[in-house]
Computed example of a mutant assay.
Amino acid sequence: MDAFKLSNRKNWDERADIHAQDRTGFYAIDAFLAGEDVLYPIEKREIGDIAGLKLAHFQCHIGIDTLCLARRGAVATGLDFSPNAIAQARTLSERSGIKADFVEGEVYDAPELIGSGFDMVFTSWGTITWLDDIRAWARAIAGVLKPGGRLYFADSNPSVMQHEEIEGSIRARYDWRSARESPQRFDSKTTYTGDQTPLVTDVTYEWMRGLSDVIGALLEAGMRLDWLREHETLPFKLYPMMVDAGERMFRLPPGVPRMPLALSLQATRTG
């Protein structure tokens, strides 16, 4: 594991333990344990009936979405590179009484780690920016899906990730593509949920890319794009100016030009 990924994994190990305590309610764990479906509204509207499907959740973190999918009837397997996240996911499975399998490992190695023949791959919110090889990601998706199996993907729109809020306005700050060997460095003393527990590993690295890189990688891997949608809300404050949009989502405030903050897509393995 190179220095970039090692720093990221240590950071996510710390975040997983903080997030599992959910002191700010960001992950709505108490509501989940009380029986509520805490998937975000975009996924709820779009994933369709998954009862009985063999489903792989890539970059599952502490497993709450995996378990929501299992509660909907999927036979779910979560995969994440953070051992702490996998441990917390297994604990959450035990606490909730909802069965799912959780496997530690790199998403690129998914076919070797969890096998093939899956009906669906699900991955959402804050995922691909942590990956240094989007083509390997797409190959892993195709590698675990059976022919006709589908991917559901929702995340920040790559076009907004190169921007930051600076002096009250949103401005381009980063190149739209990062070379594999030179990701963007970010320093943050705390995690994104509002919990003020200080992080020991407070440096992370992320890779910028274009929407064409994501779609192109999926097509190259033998996937067919079924649909692509853009959205004006996100489940987190990408920019500090963002305001509450309800249902645990955030949007840009009135007076700021509207932007496609999120995207979602479905793609199907063709062969």
Rank of each mutant, 00 (worst) to 15 (best):
F250H: 14
T77K: 07
A70Q: 12
E112S: 08
S156T: 05
G117F: 05
A100C: 00
A154G: 05
G216Q: 11
R150E: 14
R150I: 09
V144M: 15
L131S: 05
Q266I: 14
I215R: 10
T191I: 06
F153P: 04
Q266N: 08
M223H: 09
D133K: 13
V256E: 13
I166E: 03
F102D: 07
D195E: 14
S264N: 09
P254A: 11
E104K: 05
T197Q: 12
I29N: 03
L261T: 11
R248D: 05
Y239D: 06
N11Q: 15
D17F: 00
D37N: 14
D195I: 02
D244H: 06
C68I: 05
D175S: 08
T77M: 09
E230H: 12
S124L: 04
P158E: 08
P257T: 05
G126K: 04
A138G: 07
W176M: 12
R71L: 12
I98M: 06
C68H: 07
L265G: 10
S96M: 10
Q21S: 10
S116Y: 03
V107K: 01
S182P: 00
I18P: 01
V75F: 01
G194T: 03
T193Q: 03
K54S: 00
F236D: 00
W12G: 02
P253A: 10
S116Q: 12
I18A: 05
G52Q: 00
G126N: 12
A262E: 08
D132N: 09
C60I: 03
F186D: 08
K189Y: 11
K189A: 14
G149N: 08
L252V: 13
E167P: 00
I141S: 09
T123Y: 07
Y152I: 11
E94W: 05
Y108I: 04
I170W: 01
D244V: 04
P41I: 06
H163W: 07
T129I: 15
R177I: 10
D187K: 15
E112H: 08
F186G: 03
L6I: 07
G25S: 09
G115M: 09
